[in-house]
Design a protein around this nucleic acid. Structure first.
Length: 561
RNA sequence: GCGCCUGUAGCUCAGGGGAUAGAGCGCCGGCCUCCGGAGCCGGGUGCACAGGUUCGAUUCCUGUCAGGCGCACCA
């Protein structure tokens, strides 16, 4: 563990518990148990480096005034704490710890030693986690919702990896079921139209122009020889061709977006391998399946869900839900201890029954975690752009990448909570992309690199940390910067625990702000050689932290901009 | 009607049981011939409303109001 802040917190908590016990033995404070207190970093730095609410929590059980309790605790604490400068009792009964000013200095050599691993924490203990995200229908292009899911899922996966989990990124390909029928009918209509025939894309089919492109591609390859073919055969050939093409396009645009998967999982294979049937048989055996109106139903109500769900239609074809149950069984059988799905808000109704199904399969429903992200609303020219595939009027991820670029797009999607609706103003993103906060962060990184280039031109080399006196860093901005650097591992842990990449985005923005403030107040390279060395390593530690954090969000850390 | 998410500054949004609630955009005013001005510094009567729990609520709970999304033998 390379988290200084955490070490100090735990250390202070132990000391406080010790003091409470000692006071108890002397009958000065009488309580049955130690309350669930916190040691926190106060928001106001006037309140010290760390503060605890222990005394206030003891007030009631000990039947004493909190400030009185605080006094006793402080007196009982060991006196030989060299690293603590002073302890104060403040406000309603906070105990504030002021550490020796330079405690943060030790973080700098640690960061440089850890380098690209600075910020890694051992939260996951190698636990196997699967993150499934995007999983868009391979019948079209990726839209804004998919893009948000891609940025979120990939960042969550990266953060979990950094937090010590064994992460697998997976894309579930919905290449089976009803939509494949519609896909075939839509392609067929376009194909026939291209050949000058009368044909209509079904109303509930796919009306996007990309379907015409696919039909055109098929036509170029196969000519008109499917004109007279059996319609079933014709559609099958069209689907086979278009599916490969669509999937290829999806893979490519995701790669351009910086998203790479470990596993591409085909729904069809679940049907072909008999896993869907086997899963249904298993549930039936367990008594969770019954027949009604010629359909087979899953007893979701046994798991607190409002109503039961059809798993096999009256026509004998299993539903999407049946396949999804089989898919989740497959996931758990592969040994994942945590299964995380990133879903759009329009799928939230699916969460409860999916968890019910997981429970029915004999797995812990809590092992399935679903991050629901609210939908993206796209604005253009002050008006909402509909993203419906039906109208064929949606902006694709590809277009977004062309217009605002990968870094800006990814940062935009990840900077806010998944719970929050996202209004994406395309005009703003296009016309003012330079104002995007991502550049602010990247600029901090580039600035530091620029200093190093400057220094190298003068023949300088980065010093070894052991040859540097970090205590020379006493300016307010220097200390604030070092202090912020020390927070990084804790931020990674918090982001991982809450599946909240926006915490990293905020952290980086704040860190970059401190670097810019420091930069504008002090020069790194000066005639004072010792101070120059210390500052060079301070900004080097900052550069490493920025780069690691940007990496977690899938953003580049440019050396020049 | 039922369920999930959301109501924080002019706008878009972070944050979060504590001691003085933040950022970006926009607006106004400044920045030393010096490491990159995509930067810095200064300027803010804001936590939807009403109850409850608590030593302490903007944060947790309940209700009301408002917005979004679901509630298929679609996926």
């Amino acid at each position: 563990m390379f988290d200084i802040v955490e070490e100090i917190r735990v250390g202070l908590a132990h000391l406080l518990v010790g003091a409470l016990k000692a006071a108890g033995e002397k009958n000065m404070i009488k309580v049955d148990r130690v309350p669930d207190f916190t040691v926190e970093v106060p928001r106001e730095k006037e309140h010290g480096d760390f503060a605890t609410n222990l005394a206030m929590l003891l007030a009631k059980p000990a039947r004493m005034a909190p400030r009185k309790i605080a006094e006793i605790l402080v007196q009982t604490l060991p006196r030989d704490l060299a690293w603590v400068e002073k302890i104060e009792i403040a406000g309603p009964g906070f105990i504030n710890f002021y550490l020796q000013r330079d405690w943060v200095h030790q973080v700098i050599p640690r960061i440089i030693e850890k380098s690209e691993n600075y910020g890694r924490v051992k939260l996951g203990n190698g636990q196997r986690v699967q993150v499934e995200f995007v999983s868009a229908n391979p019948t079209g292009l990726l839209h804004m919702g998919n893009a948000r899911g891609a940025a979120l899922g990939d960042s969550i996966a990266s953060i979990l990896d950094f937090a010590g989990y064994d992460v697998t990124r997976e894309f579930y390909i919905n290449d089976a079921g009803n939509q494949m029928e519609k896909f075939g009918l839509s392609l067929e209509a376009r194909y026939l139209q291209l050949l000058g025939n009368e044909a209509q894309v079904p109303e509930d089919g796919y009306h996007g122009e990309d379907i015409i492109d696919s039909a055109r591609g098929f036509l170029a390859l196969e000519g008109d020889r499917y004109l007279a073919a059996d319609p079933q055969e014709r559609r099958s050939a069209l689907v086979k061709y278009a599916l490969a093409e669509k999937l290829g396009a999806i893979k490519k645009v995701l790669a351009d977006f910086g998203v790479h998967y470990d596993v591409w999982f085909s729904e069809q294979t679940l049907h072909d391998s008999g896993e869907v049937q086997a899963t249904l048989d298993y549930l039936k055996e367990k008594g969770y399946i019954y027949e009604k109106d010629q359909a087979l139903w899953f007893k979701a109500t046994s798991f607190g869900v409002e109503k039961d769900e059809v798993v096999v239609r009256a026509n004998g074809i299993p539903t999407y839900f049946a396949a999804d149950i089989a898919y989740h069984r497959n996931k758990f059988r592969r040994g994942f201890e945590r299964v995380i799905n990133i879903w759009g808000a329009d799928h939230h109704g699916h969460v409860a029954r999916m968890k019910g199904a997981v429970a029915a399969l004999g797995y812990d429903p809590a092992a399935l975690e679903v991050v629901i992200m609210q939908l993206v609303r796209l604005y253009k020219g002050g008006e909402i752009v509909r993203m419906s595939k039906r109208t064929g009027q949606f902006v694709t991820l590809e277009e977004l990448l062309e217009e605002v670029g990968r870094d800006a797009a990814r940062y935009f999607f990840v900077m806010r909570s998944p719970d929050s609706h996202l209004d994406f103003d395309l005009d703003l993103a296009k016309s003012e992309s330079n104002d995007n906060p991502v550049y602010y962060i990247q600029y901090a990184h580039a600035r530091i690199c620029s200093i190093f280039r400057q220094f190298a031109e003068q023949g300088g080399e980065l010093p070894q940390p052991s040859a540097v006196n970090f205590k020379l860093l006493q300016e307010e901005y220097e200390l604030a910067l070092a202090r912020k650097l020390a927070d990084f591992p804790g931020e990674v842990a918090a982001a991982a625990q809450n599946l909240a990449p926006q915490r990293i985005a905020r952290y980086l923005h704040e860190l970059a702000g401190l670097l810019h403030s420091f930069y504008n107040s002090h020069r790194v390279i000066t005639s004072d050689r010792e101070l120059t060395k210390a500052r060079l390593l301070l900004v080097e530690a900052t550069r490493i932290t920025l780069k690691n954090g940007l990496g977690l969000l899938g953003l580049t850390a440019p050396e020049r901009m």
